[in-house]
């Protein structure tokens, strides 16, 4: 029911689940394909991981706050998601054993994007980072690694807010 309110929701431990619109946009930006593997840094409630699994992706998800990681693991198991692997711990160094990834979602990158995560992204892979206040996501950053390993970012506002100089 709460999902229909289309707003960010607190999930305890000072964490939030993004508003459904943002989850949808992030998922769309990853251009998910069945059978691809995706790394999620910041499991939270497990909602985003479930969405990706529903699209046929193999999801590897890490959560730094242990109680959250445990409750999400339990929740996802109860709901029968077999293609989601959870782990608690620091996401900065990624998940070397399962790398490289077709796509990565990072939910808490404020000051810089961890270089190990960039290294674990496949050439041609996509990474999405929501940036801004946790109750009001301001923009999404899409990171692409081209086939030569060159890294480009693209900044997207969730809102259609153009042109900036309205009356001109």
């Amino acid at each position: 029911m709460l999902a229909y309110e289309n707003r960010p929701l607190p999930i305890g431990y000072g964490q939030t689940i993004s508003q459904p619109l943002i989850v949808a946009l992030m998922t769309d930006l990853l251009e998910p394909k069945s059978g691809q593997n995706v790394l999620e840094i910041g499991t939270g409630s497990g909602y985003q991981a479930a969405v990706l699994a529903e699209l046929g992706m193999r999801v590897y998800t890490m959560e730094i706050i242990e109680p959250l990681a445990q409750s999400a693991k339990k929740r996802l198991e109860t709901l029968g998601y077999r293609t989601i692997t959870t782990r608690s711990g620091d996401g900065y160094n990624g998940w070397k054993e399962e790398a490289p990834f077709d796509s990565i979602i990072v939910t808490a990158a404020e000051d810089h994007i961890p270089p190990p995560l960039l290294a674990q992204l496949k050439p041609g892979g996509r990474m999405v980072i929501p940036v801004g206040h946790r109750f009001m996501t301001q923009r999404l950053v899409l990171v692409r690694k081209d086939t030569k390993g060159r890294i480009i970012t693209r900044h997207l506002l969730p809102v259609r807010f153009v042109p900036l100089t309205g009356r001109r």
Binding site: N6, R7, Q19, L21, I22, G132, H133, M136, T137, Q138, L157, P158, V159, R160, F161, G166
Partner: peptide, 18 residues
Amino acid sequence: WEILPELLSLWGSGGVSL
């Protein structure tokens, strides 16, 4: 103030963050 109506009309789709 001039942009408030525009931001409010975009409330659910991210306008609130601006």
